[in-house]
Amino acid sequence: MSEAIVQLRGVSKTYTRGKQSVEVLKALDLEVAKGDFLALMGPSGSGKTTLLNLIGGLDQPSKGEVVVAGERIEKLKSSALAAWRARNVGFVFQFYNLMPMLSAQKNVELPLLLTKLSASERARRAQIALTVVGLAERASHKPNELSGGQAQRVAIARALVADPTLLICDEPTGDLDRKTADEILGLLQTLNREHGKTIVMVTHDPKAAEFATHQVHMDKGALAIEPAH
């Protein structure tokens, strides 16, 4: 097995709402190898998105260790964690989460605002990322002028532009028709195979999961089937 880029050891996550505590993840262990394309599957409420949030440094575990790209991220303070996310992770969401008032180009440039790159270099890199996802000619369009598939491509370009180690995708095709979904999944597959990006994707859709190299099933906060290596 190649080097693990994600390692979760004994990770638990408990949410407290009022007087009620709900254990969403239960002492979970997981490893994702560098260059893998992992599909996290399972019914609603199984803890997939929570697990994805922990891997992406969007949330902190209640117990356990989360090591991603060689960093114990559960130990990082808020600002260090933000900087770590900017360097290491690209996020793709189900509903694209683009800034509606910015053009596709400016949306893709957003992560680069946190770097010391010049304006022209930011623009150049955003243009390259848009070219990679096949949307260079729609750079000046705003999200409401794009179809769902195009908006998701822009979101993928935004996730790619800072050249992160890991792509985190939360139901990236959940809002798309089959044909468009397959195009997006094909694009993710290309990024994994040809650009070596490690991808962790949450999906309900077994057809979408087929694009991944590995699948992990979750149920009630625990792994139901170990990934095949």
Binding site: S79, A82, A86, R158
Partner: peptide, 16 residues
Amino acid sequence: IPELAVLKTLGFTNGG
């Protein structure tokens, strides 16, 4: 709120 959360996801700090 969701847009601000996205900015934080991309690496903008709380102070930012």
